[in-house]
Design a protein around this nucleic acid. Sequence first.
DNA 1: ACTGGGTAAACAG
DNA 2: CTGTTTACCCAGT
Length: 177
Amino acid sequence: MARPCSIALILAVPTPEGIFHASYGRAGLRAIYFPGEDGLAVVQPSGADAPAAVEMWHDLTVAAVQSALGGGGVKALPPLDWSGATGFQRRVWAALLKIPRGEVRSYAQIARQIGSPGAARAVGAACGANPIPLLVPCHRVVAARGGLGGFSAGLAWKVRLLTREGHLIQDQRLDLW
DNA sequence: ACTGGGTAAACAG
DNA sequence: CTGTTTACCCAGT
């Protein structure tokens, strides 16, 4: 499913790991794009062009992304624009935000937590639809039996992030890399 | 280790 | 509405 790429303000997020991009809607941060994702018409307005609110949000986003990449805790997030998401997706993503740095949950645990035991698979689908990976930490959700699950920006990123947060990962698929 | 059925949700038609 | 697809789970071989 394509991520929303309609009318939005897109600003660059420079990091030591490459240039991410952040997309903003009226209500706040709408999506994060990882380095190298194609198909983006990147608009980098001069400072004066961006509304003041977006400038403030973007400052928070940049700080949060850089901190998250360093394995540190994320202190503050800009408001998140989840318009267009289903109720189920919002419940899943809200649950992800409660996972402390350095901990992981299984898809089934998240399902139970939001009151839909047995919806583990649907939780996986909601994670895949998460437009704000890294800050809405879907990389902290793994399969119950030691598997990795997936990651929209690529499993290599998931492994890097988890390793940085102190987890040792083993997954058969990694041998292929 | 492998298999099969169960499961909830989103989506196309 | 039905059929298809999912970043899953668990109890059986």
